[in-house]
Design a protein around this nucleic acid. Structure first.
Lengths: 336, 336
DNA sequence: CTGAAAGCGCTAACAC
DNA sequence: GTGTTAGCGCTTTCAG
């Protein structure tokens, strides 16, 4: 049914070994034979089986990409970057969506291992990612990005969350806020914890009191953002500003504030971690910490391919710098 | 190095055939042996090679998913739906991003074929998708969704674009607009053409003149939207409303209108095809035609799996109904 | 320079 | 019920 290397060999009047040599660009083949083989390939519409090749070579040209939430535009950009880089290297991407779910993640890692993947790129759902460690032990290159895993020797590419959050909160302080709430992902994710750390650090460096009751955490989801905003608005002594720890939370918070007819930034200012296109389309526009998303994906992919190609330098831990984009939702400085 | 079925067989004191039978759930194996095999599997951390299995069975448990723009939230939701359904069926998804680029698309189809995919789900970049037809001829199930391809016997799942656009424009007419511009994807994409058809149909059914100068087409990208909005605003005799053919175009148009300080809906009303979360967060909120995105992905996946399982009914062409969500950007009825 | 043959890990006939 | 064996399509020694 399907045309194999043997069919090509027969048609070209050579052995399958020669066909293979031609197709994989090996040297020492006569030009006339090359031509005959290529002609047969054309005529038969032959396409080599990547599966057979993968079995024989014990290694595929697939890289695995497990991300934790494909609906989140932040991760989408990441996927885009990885895909670009991989296809440029002649690899294809096996995309999996763990949905922030550890079981699904393990399941996928197992499948990917069975597919002989050349390497894995992952934004781990939780800090404990054991199956991931199993891969590493088997010698399959792994790079985690955006998030860290605990107790493992893995290359990691991260955005400097502490610094980003610090910048955001510092900006709020600079324009006169002293009572600032934080809405972040719960602390079992490194991103949530680190951003909270930046928040605390900013308050501290301005000698502002840290009120634990102003820290609100939940799942990184829109619904959680709404709910936490509701809690904030019910506070007897309301904060004058909110620091939102990611784009989904921002969306929920923003929606709630609008419905509650809270004027932004007069009644409550807001800064978001993560910058999205539509932040420039709201009224007011939304001040945000922009992460170098594309670079994050690209760097992780680069690192992975170096490992795939056999580089053996010590484990790398790369930190990328985010940047505060000041817009309207954080308010004007009240000092001027 | 890696542990194979033979290692398990040796450890369990059985043949590899028995191990295979146990693992694939075949009948006629003694319970004691099943236990011994499972124990060996556990102890050795054995994971079957999906590659070897795929080669042997001449069919993998992978389905290919080629979408035309992974950065577009509309497609992201689609991916999510497909992924959900596939994983539930025990399949994994090979995600490829054609980037609206026909060469990339062909390239991917070729790779996927080499991976022995069980089936392909695709939102074709252009109406002519020849490689896709090649797959169909090889007997690999294909379902196109969101867009159609020309001259092929393929299962297709679409949203009723004509009807959606008709609803949108009709609504604008109902609230009093008579001069309505259309900003859509260029007509070499079925979505663009069909939505334009709905636009024309709505004007016609209300006996409104069709002014071809009010039809603006371009790539389905934010930048194109901006540019086309600029052109519209420069028109000597401006329209009072704009119908936007997809979410990226809406984004560009909206951004331009805001910067041009055009009051929405007073100076210019707007309705978007495609509904996004953030449409409720702008001021005014954005009236939009909501597509049943998740259902679109799910239906396509269902259809594909039926084919994979061997169903052979005639080619299906499923049309899903969109729904107009009236918000503020289209303005109040001036009749009341 | 080219061909024959082995074998990657697995499943399915076919024996027993 | 269970083991033996062939072979999926390819690459790669090893001969020649």
């Amino acid at each position: 049914m399907t045309v194999t290397i043997k069919d090509v060999a027969r048609k070209a009047g050579v052995s399958s070994a020669t066909v293979s040599r031609v197709l994989t660009g090996k040297p020492h083949v006569r030009n006339t034979l090359i031509d005959r083989v290529m002609k047969a390939v054309e005529e038969l519409h032959y396409r080599p089986s990547r599966v057979a090749r993968s079995l024989r070579e014990q290694k595929s040209h697939i890289i695995g990409l497990i991300i934790s939430d494909i609906m989140n535009p932040f991760f989408t950009s990441l996927v885009r970057a990885v895909e670009d880089f991989a296809s440029q290297e002649g690899y294809t991407v096996f995309l999996c969506n763990s949905d922030e779910n550890v079981e699904k993640e393990e399941q996928y890692i197992s499948v990917l291992a069975g597919e002989n993947i050349a390497g894995l790129l992952i934004t781990p759902a939780k800090e404990q990612c054991c199956s991931c460690k199993a891969l590493i032990e088997e010698g399959i290159p792994v790079v985690t990005f955006d998030r860290r895993i605990a107790n493992a020797e893995v290359d990691t590419v991260m955005v400097d969350n502490v610094m980003g959050a610090y910048q955001a909160v510092n900006h709020l302080i600079a324009v006169g806020h002293e009572r600032i709430a934080a809405v972040t992902a719960s602390e079992d994710r490194t991103t949530g914890r680190e951003r909270l750390e930046g928040y605390r650090k900013a308050l501290k460096s301005s000698h502002l009191p840290l009120d634990e009751d102003l820290i609100f955490t939940g799942a990184p989801k829109k619904e959680a953002g709404r709910e936490l905003a509701r809690k904030i608005m019910q506070l007897p002594f309301r904060p004058t500003a909110i620091f939102c720890g990611n784009n989904l939370l921002t969306m929920g918070v923003w929606g709630y504030l609008q419905e509650a007819e809270c004027r932004i930034p007069e009644d409550c200012a807001l800064v978001s971690f993560d910058d999205l296109d539509w932040y420039t389309l709201t009224k007011p526009t939304i001040t945000a910490v922009r992460q170098p998303v594309y670079e994050l994906g690209k760097t992780a992919a680069e690192l992975l391919f170096e490992r795939i190609k056999g580089k053996t330098y010590p484990v790398k831990d790369i930190l990328l710098e985010p940047k505060l984009i000041v817009r309207e939702s954080s308010g004007r400085s009240i000092h001027h």
